[in-house]
Amino acid sequence: MAKYRSNRINEEMRKEVSSIIQNDIKDPRISAMVSVTKVDVTKDLRYAKVYVSLYGNEESKKSTLDALKGSSGFIRREIGHRINLRYTPEIIMELDNTIEQGMHIDELLHKIREKEHHDNE
């Protein structure tokens, strides 16, 4: 499969999964702050890793991720109706911590700048 086609499928899957999570899933365990950051579909279109970023405390993140994993069959069925692919990929939900890691690195850099500024005075 050509790389541009793979990227188009990944992006279309990301949009549709995000729409399904926001509009169609009615599970009360899913918090309002769920963001689909990335989707990686395998070359044979059998599996799709869906990376989600969750906002909240650890308990709410865990319950939301469990609810999303539980609703992966529903998401797969909806994807099959919305996107015309030879195979509808099996959905694998993964937690994406890159936003929190970026915030942590930014905080560390800010502390270093403050320390350097304080040492220069």
Rank of each mutant, 00 (worst) to 15 (best):
K61H: 08
R82M: 04
H104D: 10
H117L: 03
S19H: 11
T98H: 05
H81S: 10
R82C: 11
L45P: 11
A32C: 10
S18W: 01
D96S: 02
V52F: 00
R46W: 05
L108W: 09
D66W: 07
E16N: 06
G56D: 07
L109W: 13
V36M: 04
T98W: 02
S35I: 00
M33L: 13
I112W: 11
R5C: 05
I21T: 03
Y55C: 15
E116I: 02
F74M: 12
I112H: 15
T98Y: 03
M33G: 03
E12A: 09
R29K: 07
I21M: 01
I9R: 04
K69D: 10
L109G: 08
S31T: 14
I25W: 10
R8Q: 14
M93R: 02
E90V: 08
E121D: 11
T37K: 09
I92N: 05
E116T: 04
D96L: 00
I21H: 01
E12F: 03
Q101E: 13
S31E: 08
P28C: 04
S63N: 12
S71D: 11
E107D: 14
E11Y: 09
K38R: 15
S31C: 10
R14W: 01
L68T: 02
M1W: 08
L54N: 03
N84W: 11
R14M: 03
D24N: 12
K26W: 05
I79N: 00
M103V: 09
M103G: 07
Q101I: 13
R113T: 03
I92H: 06
K49I: 01
R5M: 09
I20M: 07
K3R: 15
Y51T: 00
L54H: 00
T64S: 14
R46K: 14
G80P: 12
R76N: 08
I99W: 09
V39F: 02
I112C: 13
S18L: 00
I20N: 08
I9V: 15
H104I: 03
S72F: 01
M13Y: 11
Q22I: 01
N10H: 08
D24H: 13
K38E: 14
D66G: 07
I92Y: 05
V36W: 01
L68P: 15
H118I: 03
V52R: 01
A67T: 11
K15Q: 12
V17H: 01
E94N: 11
V36N: 04
S71G: 13
K111D: 14
E94G: 05
P89G: 00
N10L: 05
N57F: 12
R14G: 01
V36K: 05
R77T: 13
V39L: 04
